[in-house]
Simulated scan of single mutants.
Amino acid sequence: MTFSLVARCEETGMFGMAIASSSPAVAARCAYARAGVGAVASQNVTDPTLGPLALDLMQGGMSAAEAIAGVRDLGKFIEYRQVLAVDRQGRTAIHSGPKSLGIWTQAEAPNVASGGNLLANERVPQAIVDGYRAATGHIGDRLIAAMRAGLAAGGEAGPVHSAGLLIVDKVSWPVAELRCDWTEDCPIENIATAWGVYEPQLDAYIQRALDPREAPSYGVPGDD
């Protein structure tokens, strides 16, 4: 019921992930990233503890593959889980349990990994990886291009209703965390619209947190 990708920008070191599902509020349970460490998607009969676990293992020095092995050892009912990870060196790893739902498959390349379950066909994750690698610009633009490519390749077997985009950079909080928790329209396009509004302001929001004295004006009524 989900397709996603985790990615590292080889130029900036940013990490990001994007995800879509027929289930409500998918990003609230499945999206994880930590600046300087990596990004993780934990999906398919989701255990929300597995994302932080994988990030903790990578922060402790493990590679993505070692962290995913640790998730297999420490996680419960791991045969039901699908977990994707990318680490600070752009190495990727994926666990897809044999009890993943419906058509499930995965694809990897340097700096990007994709996986899905209850898919329309087995080509979707590779289309997502190819879409990310072919795209240019900000990692947010590339994540959206990848998700659009996955949807164009067939996406989920049924309609998707929720989506999310998560990006981390040099600070301890997400520099972008955009969600569409439920819609009868296309949640990926809703996220793309929100990203188009948010991306030009991203640096200003970071600066306001770090030192509001040096930040640009807020652009609200009464702000002079």
Rank of each mutant, 00 (worst) to 15 (best):
R142M: 12
H95Y: 12
N117K: 01
N121F: 01
K99I: 07
W104G: 09
A107C: 05
V86I: 10
A149F: 05
V160P: 15
A146V: 01
A135Q: 08
G154V: 10
A120Y: 15
G102D: 11
P110I: 02
Q82E: 11
K99V: 05
S100A: 04
R142Y: 08
G155E: 12
Q106H: 03
A134M: 12
V124I: 09
A113P: 01
V83C: 14
N121K: 02
T136K: 10
A135V: 13
G140F: 13
S114F: 07
R133I: 15
R148Y: 08
S96K: 09
S162F: 01
G115P: 14
A85H: 09
G115Q: 08
E108P: 02
L119A: 12
R133Y: 05
Q126F: 00
N121P: 03
R148L: 15
V83A: 14
L101S: 14
S100Q: 01
S162Y: 00
A93E: 12
V86S: 13
R142Q: 10
R142A: 09
L151G: 09
G150V: 12
V83D: 14
R91T: 02
L119E: 07
V129L: 13
G140D: 09
R133C: 15
I139G: 02
A93F: 03
A85E: 13
I94S: 11
I144Y: 04
P159W: 07
A152N: 11
G158A: 13
G131Y: 04
P125I: 06
G116Q: 06
L101E: 15
S114P: 01
G97E: 00
A85G: 11
N121Q: 00
Q126M: 09
I128K: 00
A113D: 02
L84P: 14
L118C: 06
R91G: 13
Q89E: 12
P159I: 12
A145L: 00
D87N: 15
E156I: 07
Q82L: 10
W104H: 15
A85N: 04
G90Y: 04
P159V: 11
L143V: 10
P98M: 13
I139F: 02
V160C: 14
A107E: 02
N111D: 15
A149C: 08
A152V: 14
P159S: 10
G155C: 13
G158T: 10
P125T: 06
A149Q: 14
R142I: 11
L118Y: 09
G154L: 03
G137N: 06
A152Q: 11
T105P: 01
A149H: 12
R123C: 07
A109F: 06
V112P: 04
A135F: 10
T136H: 11
R88S: 15
Q126N: 04
G155Y: 12
R91V: 05
A146K: 00
V124A: 08
H161G: 02
V129P: 09
I103S: 00
T92F: 04
H161N: 03
I103A: 01
